[in-house]
Structures are given as structure tokens and as C-alpha cells.
């Protein structure tokens, strides 16, 4: 049982200090959750801490690849539009990844 940070992550560091298990590490091209350490905060907090502060919809998913913050849930942007934006973000990320390693919001 572990949450996963995917390629939508913008490396903003917000989640890293909150993890009660020190399961989140800075990595390239984006932050990672060490699966063995992640407990989804069970026993520590009511809500998974990383997913409670993450500002990016879709960037943190569960073991079934379901986003804890689905499109529109954080920004209030209507669902369909939010889905399109996330897709656009994914394409941009893939293109950026081809160009080489990236720093924060390059």
C-alpha cells in the first residue's frame, strides 16, 4: 500500500517535510515516494499529508492509479476543462523530458 507521485509533479517541496515516514525524496525529474516506507499516513493522520497539501490535481495517485485530487477538485476549474489542462500538462512534461533534465518549473 503506497501512494505514488507522477510526472505532473512540479517539485514544489510542499509535501516533503510533512511525511510522517520520511518516505518522500527529492529526485529527478520529480519527487518520489519510497513505496516501502509509505503508509498513506494511516495511524498518523486522518488524511494523507502529501495529497492534502499538493497543489497539482492528479499528481498523487493511489495503487490503482486513481488521483487523490481529481481534476477540478483543487482549482475549482470545471471537470472537463481541468482534464484537458492535465492532458496538456502531461504532453508538455513529456516534451520537456525529451529535451533533458529539468529544474523546478524550467
Amino acid at each position: 500500500m503506497s501512494l505514488v507521485i507522477n510526472e505532473l509533479c512540479v517539485n514544489c517541496w510542499a509535501c516533503e517535510p510533512l511525511c510522517p515516514n520520511d518516505a518522500i525524496i527529492e529526485a529527478k525529474p520529480h519527487f518520489k515516494i519510497i513505496a516501502d516506507k509509505c503508509t498513506e499516513c494511516l495511524g498518523d493522520y486522518d488524511d494523507a499529508q502529501c495529497a492534502s497539501i499538493c497543489p497539482i490535481e492528479g499528481a498523487i495517485v493511489d495503487e490503482f492509479d486513481e488521483p487523490l485530487n481529481p481534476p477540478g477538485s483543487l482549482t475549482g476549474i470545471p471537470y472537463e476543462l481541468a482534464v484537458q489542462l492535465i492532458e496538456k500538462g502531461r504532453i508538455a512534461e513529456a516534451e520537456a523530458a525529451k529535451r533533458g533534465p529539468r529544474e523546478y518549473l524550467d
Binding site: C12, A14, T75, G76, Y104
Partner: peptide
């Protein structure tokens, strides 16, 4: 880099 709120 981190933020604790969202602004529209």
C-alpha cells in the same frame, strides 16, 4: 517553492 494555500 512550497505554498500553503491556493489563490484563484
Amino acid at each position: 517553492p512550497a505554498c500553503n494555500i491556493q489563490c484563484h
